[in-house]
Amino acid sequence: MLIAKAEVFLTEVPYKNPYQIATNITAKGRHVVLKLTTDTGLIGWGESGIISRGYPAQGDTPETVLAVLEAYLCPAIIGKNPCLFEVIMSDLDLLIKGHQFAKCAIAHALLDLAGKVYGVPICNLLGGAYALSYKVSRSYRGLAMSD
């Protein structure tokens, strides 16, 4: 089984409540979604979100993530075995430095594919579930509030 096709999409999802951090308020999430399809028809999904407008100062925007995926990372993984996660991610680090948000989308999609191939939850591929439920927090008016 090999990766046969990679499709990248830029999406915008409005938040129920704007996401507030110290430097700004964001009303919608801008996410890059990656769809990897194998030569056997299996599909893996990955995603990378830029939750703050502050990231352009660090060089990452949804548009740069999309461009790096389309121009560099996705072409490099076509024809590769998606279950060779560490090899692929190491090769991508050699191909282009940084761009962790773009590489995150690839990592998610590869793990999704591997979980489907082996018929196990992704947490099992990462050493097993530590807990079955987690508290989630969100920045809101400068305070961490538990959802």
Results as ranks from 00 to 15, higher is better:
Ala4Ser: 09
Lys5Leu: 12
Lys5Asn: 09
Ala6Ser: 08
Ala6Pro: 02
Glu7Cys: 03
Glu7Asn: 08
Glu7Thr: 10
Val8Leu: 02
Val8Tyr: 06
Phe9Glu: 12
Phe9Arg: 08
Leu10Arg: 10
Glu12Asp: 06
Glu12Ser: 14
Glu12Val: 15
Glu12Phe: 08
Val13Met: 11
Val13Arg: 14
Val13Ala: 05
Pro14Tyr: 09
Pro14Trp: 12
Pro14Arg: 08
Pro14Lys: 06
Tyr15Lys: 10
Lys16His: 15
Lys16Pro: 07
Lys16Gln: 15
Lys16Trp: 13
Asn17Leu: 15
Pro18Gly: 13
Pro18Trp: 15
Tyr19Gly: 05
Tyr19Ser: 04
Ala22Pro: 01
Ala22Asn: 09
Thr23Glu: 15
Thr23Leu: 15
Thr23Gly: 11
Asn24Asp: 15
Asn24Lys: 09
Ile25Glu: 14
Ile25Ser: 13
Ile25Trp: 13
Ala27Gln: 13
Ala27Lys: 15
Lys28Pro: 08
Gly29Lys: 13
Gly29Leu: 14
Gly29His: 11
Val32Trp: 07
Val32His: 07
Val32Tyr: 08
Val33Cys: 08
Val33Thr: 09
Leu34Ile: 12
Lys35Trp: 10
Lys35Pro: 06
Lys35Ile: 12
Leu36Cys: 02
Thr37Gly: 00
Thr37Asp: 03
Thr38Arg: 01
Thr38Glu: 01
Asp39Ile: 03
Asp39Ser: 09
Asp39Gln: 06
Asp39Pro: 01
Asp39Val: 04
Thr40Lys: 13
Thr40His: 08
Thr40Trp: 07
Thr40Gly: 01
Gly41Val: 03
Leu42Gln: 08
Leu42Val: 05
Ile43Arg: 02
Gly44Ser: 01
Gly44Ile: 02
Trp45Asp: 06
Gly46Asn: 04
Gly46Trp: 11
Glu47Tyr: 07
Ile51Gly: 08
Ile51Leu: 14
Ser52Phe: 09
Arg53Ile: 12
Gly54Thr: 09
Gly54Met: 13
Pro56Val: 01
Ala57Gly: 02
Gln58His: 09
Gln58Thr: 04
Gly59Asn: 03
Gly59Phe: 10
Asp60Gln: 07
Thr61Pro: 00
Thr61Met: 04
Thr61Ala: 01
Pro62Gly: 00
Pro62Lys: 01
Glu63Trp: 12
Glu63Leu: 10
Thr64Phe: 10
Leu66Arg: 12
Val68Pro: 00
Glu70Asn: 12
Glu70Pro: 00
Ala71Asn: 13
Ala71Asp: 15
Leu73Cys: 07
Leu73His: 06
Leu73Ser: 03
Cys74Lys: 02
Cys74Trp: 04
Pro75His: 04
Pro75Phe: 10
Pro75Val: 00
Pro75Asp: 03
Ile77Trp: 11
Ile77Val: 14
Ile78His: 07
Gly79Lys: 07
Lys80Val: 08
Asn81Thr: 04
Asn81Ile: 03
Pro82Ala: 09
Leu84Ala: 07
Leu84Asp: 10
Glu86His: 03
Glu86Asn: 05
Glu86Pro: 00
Ile88Tyr: 03
Ser90Leu: 05
